[in-house]
Design a protein around this nucleic acid. Structure first.
Length: 272
DNA sequence: CTTTCAGCCTGGGCGC
DNA sequence: TGCGCCCAGGCTGAAA
């Protein structure tokens, strides 16, 4: 479920609970999580918890006493239903869909994932871990840069926004919300957007994401952040999951259409 | 380059 | 209550 704001929320809430802690033990309960032998984590200190694209990033110290050993960048991709949950100690009833446990010197970090799409990956440097797409909240994301990304592309706006090799972090909800805020139709060919429209798109992207982060993300059925608290951005959703309802801006009926196998929501009245 | 399709999983909601 | 279908905040690889 998580897109950039939800992942950012998880990382921010996990950071004070986990940073500075030392890994005391790891148990992978789902063999699908391994796309290779996981390096030894025991004894490493969690230096930092953050977000890299749509993934939660754990920067781990070298193992004490290990020769030539360096730091480790562990990325957790939550995909659709993954959740990272910090607990003082595992209680009964928390075992459902538990896929991995990271025991710390205080508390425990649980990875829970109903649909089992989530993945772990690890790298030896920040550069290696860095995604190719641009982070829309970074200073590199400008109308000018956006113009370069869309140059010559015939792709429709909404599918384009989902491309992680161009922009990292957007998913199906925000890829519908952003065009609404920008007043652009999700079916517009991105290569044909005018400079003024690209500026609006750029600004809308940042505004939507910032506001979503300020509200701890969007919560539907199964998203919970690190403490089990829910986000509240869903009350700001203008079009997503609102097919048939009135557009707050122009009063027209919001519509839904399947675009590249995924639901797109938009207002035909004010998105051009 | 772009789109479509199937697949990876599990569960909730709906109509009958 | 049960069954079959559709839906789901992500992504990949193969094929058209």
């Amino acid at each position: 479920m998580p897109e950039l704001p939800e992942v950012e929320t998880v990382a921010r809430q996990l950071a004070p609970l986990v940073e500075g802690r030392t890994v005391a033990g790891v148990r992978l309960l789902d063999p699908r999580l391994r796309n290779g032998p996981l390096p030894r984590l025991t004894g490493r200190r969690v230096e930092r918890v953050g977000r890299l694209g749509k993934q939660v990033m754990f920067v781990l110290s070298p193992r004490p006493g290990e020769r030539n050993g360096g730091g480790l960048w562990l990325l957790v991709h939550l995909r659709m239903t993954g959740r990272l949950h910090w607990v003082e100690r595992l209680r009964r009833g928390e075992g459902a869909h538990l896929r991995a446990r990271f025991r710390l010197d205080r508390g425990e970090l649980l990875f829970v994932d109903t649909r089992r799409f989530g993945t772990f990956s690890w790298y030896r440097s920040r550069e290696e871990a860095e995604p190719v797409g641009i982070d829309p909240l970074s200073s590199a994301f400008t109308p000018r840069r956006l113009a370069e990304l869309v140059a010559g592309s015939r792709q429709a706006l909404k599918p384009f926004l989902l491309r992680q090799d161009k922009l990292v972090g957007l998913g199906n909800i925000y890829a519908s919300e952003i065009p609404w805020v920008a007043g652009l139709s999700p079916f517009r060919r991105v290569g044909r957007l005018k400079p003024d429209e690209l500026r609006r798109l750029c600004r809308a992207t940042r505004r939507v994401l910032r506001r979503a982060i300020d509200n701890c993300g969007t919560t539907f059925s199964d998203f919970q952040d690190a403490r089990g608290v829910e986000g509240s951005y869903q009350r700001f959703l203008a079009v997503y999951d609102r097919a048939g309802e009135r557009c707050r801006r122009c009063g027209a009926r919001v519509r839904r259409r399947v675009q590249q196998q995924r639901s797109t929501f938009w207002c035909p009245g004010c998105q051009r």
